[in-house]
């Protein structure tokens, strides 16, 4: 199976001092839910930002579906950042129309359906929404797309347990089986059951890339327990 995401010798340094990502080679297949796991400051978000063209790598090459990061890949990648970009007094519906205009793979019907199930009014103005509700709207904007790659940076951090369940359900129910979901988190227990594969990241380097089942089988413990063992302080 051809890989969807290819990172070849990718490095990122800030000020030529701090090497946030160090010569990473990684190939991610299609049709998997992959956990990008690592402690805070391990380089997960930096890798994700480079995949989405928010950060330029210092060295190396990133390709998605065979294309270098650019307008072509951005049309195929749905990205949920760890930031809230929904500001101003636009309504939720206006933001949906914005996405519908720019992304051919955005489904207005699907997004409105998800909005309804979360009891959020399409007429609600962004500046009247709570932080948690904005995060849910951002997730809908991502999962409302029929993308090749979904990149979710800490999608369940900062939300209540009930919302976590909904978010995980939304990810599983709405992603295209041919697509890949890359989830970055350090809350492994909550997402362990949905992961097909896991990537452990430490100090900007990949220390492990394996299937979640194999880890459980070979190590005789959960991914979360193994993570704690590998990253014990």
């Amino acid at each position: 199976m051809s890989s969807l995401v290819e990172l070849k010798g990718v490095s990122k340094s800030y000020d030529n001092k701090l090497l946030a990502v160090n010569n990473v080679n990684l190939s991610l297949p299609r049709g998997k839910i992959i956990g990008l796991l690592g402690p805070n400051g391990s380089g997960k978000t930096t890798m994700i930002k480079m995949i989405n063209g928010i950060l330029a790598p210092t060295a190396g090459e990133i390709r998605i579906a065979g294309m270098p990061v650019g307008p072509g890949t951005k049309a195929r990648v749905a990205y949920l950042p760890d930031r809230n970009y929904l500001t101003g007094n636009k309504t939720v519906e206006q933001v949906f129309h914005y996405f519908d205009d720019f992304y051919e793979n955005f489904s207005m019907q699907k997004a409105l359906g998800m909005l309804e199930s979360l009891h959020i009014q399409p007429e609600a103005r962004l500046n009247s929404l709570s932080k948690g509700t904005k995060e849910k709207v951002q997730l809908i904007l991502v999962m409302g797309r029929d993308a090749d790659l979904y990149v979710l940076d800490e999608p369940i951090a900062g939300v209540d347990p009930a919302a976590r369940d909904y978010i995980l359900r939304a990810i599983i129910d709405n992603y295209n089986p041919e697509a890949t979901v890359l989830i970055s988190t350090h809350l492994i227990t909550d997402i362990e059951n949905v992961l097909d594969e896991v990537v452990f990241v430490r100090r900007g380097q990949i220390v492990l890339y394996n299937s979640a089942d194999k880890i459980r089988e070979e190590k005789g413990k959960s991914v979360d327990a193994y993570f704690r063992e590998v990253f014990a302080c």
Binding site: I54, P71, K74, Y79, R83, N84, Y85
Partner: peptide
Amino acid sequence: SDQGYLTHTLPVT
């Protein structure tokens, strides 16, 4: 700013 996370992930040059 944070809005750049949306602007720079639009499929535009």
